[in-house]
Design a protein around this nucleic acid. Structure first.
Lengths: 227, 227
DNA sequence: CGTAGAATTGAACACTCTCAATTAGCGTGG
DNA sequence: CCACGCTAATTGAGAGTGTTCAATTCTACG
C-alpha cells in the first residue's frame, strides 16, 4: 500500500472516468423487489473466483480493491482490470468467468445472482440495456488497454495508469494506490522493476511525490499524457 | 494477399472459433419485419467510419475483410480486430464508434440501423440478450488479446494469430490471409519486420508453407501453441 | 528491535525495433 | 509478350528499450 500525491494540475486529463452512472444503476437494481443482494468480506489476496469457473455471482466492490487476471502456463500474469469501490465486476452474459479475480486488500463486496439480473432484464428493457452498456464499457476499457499494451512505451503506460487511477480514486491531488508494483506491472505488461524505475524518474522530475512509503511531496509541472 | 498452407494436424487448437451462432442470429434478425437491412460495397483500403464518429450503422461482412483500429498521435496504430465474412462489427451500446474501421480488400457489407436493433431488442428479450452476448464475445476476444499483447513473445503472438485465423477461415489446411504484414504487426503489437521474420522461421522449421506469393507446401510437425 | 516482504537500484543481457538494402510479385503499358 | 515500375515482403546489421538477475534499502509489523 503506497500513498501517492499528485498535483491537481497534473491530473487534468482526457481519460474518461468510470461510469458511476452504471454503478449507481446497479445499486438501484439491487433495491428492486426480489433481487437478492448480500454482502461478503474477503481478506487481502484472497481468490474470489478462478478462470473458467461457473459464474455464480455478479459483484460490486463496496470497500477495498480487486484485480482480475489471466495466467500463462509459465506463471506470467496479465491483469485485465482493477475494480475499486462502487465498481461492478464479473458481469458475464454467459455462464462462466473469463478471468480470475482476487482481492488486493481486505475487501467487502455486494453479491447478486446473475439469474436475478436476467429476470429483471427480461421484465425491464432499461435494465437489459444497462447490463449491455456495462459490458460495452468494459470492452471500451479493454480496447484502450490493447492500444496501451501494443503500442505505448513504458513511461507512457505508467503515465496513463496514474491518470486512470487518479480519475478513479483521487481526492485533493492525493491518491492511495492499493496495488503493489508487481500488480501494476502485470496490468501494464511490464516488470515490477520497470514500474519502479519509471515512478522514480517521475519523482525525480518533480511530477509526483510519495507519502506513506518514502517521503515526498506533490509538485506542479503541467504534464500531458496525451496518447 | 498471401495464401498460406498449414497442415491440418498443426491446426487443431484450443482457440475458440467465432460465434457463428451469433452471426446467424444477426442474419435472422435482419429478416425480421421492419428491420431495414441494405448492402454496400467498399473498395480495398476504404474507410468505413472513423474513431469517435456517430454510430449510424451496424455492419455484417458479407465478402471481404475489415480491420478496426485506434491511432496514436505519432501515427502508430493498434488494430483491435479483424472481421471476416459472416462476422458483425460496429455494434455499440452507445451512440459512437470507439474504433475506426477500414476495408482490407474489396468488401461487401450488410447494414442495419442501430435504432432498428434497439427497437427489436425492446420487443424481444432473446434479441436483447443476443446483442449483449455479441458485445460480451468481443470483450472476451479483447481480454485474450490483452494477455497476448502484454505477456507473449513475438513468436507466440504469431502462432496465436495463425491459429486464430485458421479457426476462422481455413478449409482443408489452407487459408488465404487477406491482410498484409503491417496489418498483422499492428494487430499483434509488433513491427512488420518481426512478423516477416517469425513467418520465415516457421517456414524454415517446416511448420507452414506459402502459396501464391513465394512457393511452398504444407508440412506436418505437430505444433502446440498453448499459451 | 528484529524479521519479512516490498521497493529501489545497478549492471549485463536479450528481444524487438529501426534503418537500410535487396528481392519478389504484380499490374500497366509499350 | 516483355519491360518497367510500384508495392509488399524479406533479410541484414546495429541500436535501444525493457528484462533479468542480483544486491541493497526501506517499511510495516510482530
Amino acid at each position: 500500500m503506497v500513498s501517492l500525491n499528485i498535483n491537481p494540475v497534473v491530473c487534468r486529463n482526457n481519460i474518461a472516468p468510470p461510469s458511476q452512472f452504471l454503478s449507481h444503476q446497479f445499486g438501484a437494481m439491487a433495491g428492486h423487489i426480489g433481487l437478492v443482494a448480500s454482502e461478503y468480506c474477503y481478506k487481502k489476496d484472497e481468490e474470489i473466483f478462478g478462470e473458467d469457473e461457473p459464474a455464480e455471482y455478479v459483484y460490486q466492490v463496496i470497500t477495498g480493491a480487486v484485480r482480475s487476471y489471466k495466467l500463462l502456463s509459465d506463471g506470467r500474469r496479465q491483469i485485465g482490470a482493477f475494480y475499486l469501490p462502487g465498481e461492478v465486476f464479473a458481469l458475464e452474459s454467459s455462464s462462466a468467468h473469463r478471468l480470475a479475480a482476487e482481492t488486493i486488500v481486505d475487501t467487502t463486496v455486494r453479491l447478486v445472482k446473475p439469474s436475478s439480473l436476467e429476470r429483471l432484464a427480461s421484465l425491464n428493457v432499461e435494465i437489459a440495456h444497462s447490463l449491455w452498456a456495462m459490458t460495452a464499457f468494459e470492452l471500451e476499457h479493454a480496447e484502450n488497454h490493447m492500444l496501451l499494451l501494443g503500442r505505448k512505451s513504458a513511461m507512457k503506460r505508467i503515465a496513463n495508469f496514474l491518470l486512470e487511477m487518479d480519475a478513479r480514486l483521487a481526492s485533493a491531488g492525493v491518491m492511495t494506490l492499493p496495488m503493489c508494483r508487481r500488480d501494476i506491472g502485470d496490468y501494464l505488461g511490464l516488470t515490477l522493476e520497470t514500474v519502479s524505475r519509471a515512478l522514480s524518474q517521475l519523482e525525480a522530475q518533480g511530477v509526483l511525490g510519495f507519502s506513506g512509503a518514502r517521503q515526498n511531496r506533490a509538485t506542479e509541472s503541467p504534464v500531458s499524457a496525451k496518447d
